[in-house]
């Protein structure tokens, strides 16, 4: 038999000690008779050894403190990690897209200086627009801890949702969240939704947030609230409190 009679997969499995005994015995016999097969097996063994040696020392390097801290902080104080890849630029476009989606999804009319006015942007129309959230956003708020970024589709667009904080005050459970289109960075929308009949209902008018709220640094869940206080919500739940409330179905 020659190397042509043995697949590389079988010879590799032999080199890795992953062949069953009868098959291993047959390969061993073939090896004795054919140096080419033996050389092939040696090649597989050498590759494994070199890879382990090359990457083994990484294990002995100290783990950066920020990683250890991040693990310890899990669940207590939500951390938003810096997003890789997409960063600066396209802010104006981001604002346009976010606002367009907000108008479509949440049924609100919003305007910013320099942007196209969209319909009646009176406070009355904004208030009238509050109400139950779309199912995908509702489900995301149901299960996503504050500080975690969720991805969903709204109005046929990929949207990122970042719950900022949860509140359980004056007999009502609310969550403050940011809404952003990841296709561009910069502006996002902030809203507050509260539990009503086992679903999330938009309470505040979403507001455009000119300062980056997602992906541009670290922000604590509790630190996000600028809208909630206007609704009488002053004490964001801790990560643990939020987790317990979430586990009880926000009741």
């Amino acid at each position: 038999m020659s190397t042509h009679d043995w697949s590389d997969e079988v010879l590799m499995a032999y080199a890795d000690g992953a062949l069953h005994a009868p098959d291993a015995a047959r390969v061993r016999e073939a090896t004795a008779a054919d140096p080419e097969i033996a050389a092939r097996i040696d090649m597989f063994r050498a590759s494994g050894r070199l890879l382990r040696e090359a990457f083994g020392p990484v294990l002995r390097q100290p783990v950066p403190q920020r990683l250890c801290d991040a693990v310890q902080a899990l669940g207590s104080e939500a951390v938003v990690r810096p997003e890789r890849g997409v960063r600066a630029g396209r802010r104006r476009r981001a604002a346009m897209v976010v606002l367009a989606i907000a108008a479509t999804v949440l049924g609100v009319m919003i305007t910013l200086p320099g942007l196209e006015r969209r319909g009646r942007d009176t406070p009355a129309s904004l208030l009238a627009a509050t109400g139950p959230l779309p199912a995908s956003l509702n489900d995301t708020l149901d299960r996503l801890p504050s500080g975690e970024v969720g991805h969903l589709t709204l109005a046929a667009r990929e949207v990122e949702v970042l719950p900022l904080a949860s509140y359980d005050e004056a007999g009502v459970v609310c969550r403050e969240f940011d809404l952003k289109v990841p296709a561009a960075s910069g502006e996002s929308l902030r809203g507050v939704a509260c539990r009503d009949a086992n679903r999330w209902v938009l309470r505040s008018t979403p507001e455009s947030m000119p300062k980056p709220a997602l992906g541009d640094g670290y922000e604590t869940a509790a630190g996000g609230g600028e809208l909630a206080p206007r609704l009488g919500l002053h004490r964001p739940l801790s990560g643990e409190e939020e987790r317990r409330l979430m586990a009880r179905g926000w009741r």
């Binding site: 697949s7 590389d8 997969e9 590799m12 090649m43 597989f44 590759s47 070199l50």
Partner: peptide, 10 residues
Amino acid sequence: RLARARSELM
């Protein structure tokens, strides 16, 4: 994939 990768590496 693994057999090909190891052959290619070597």
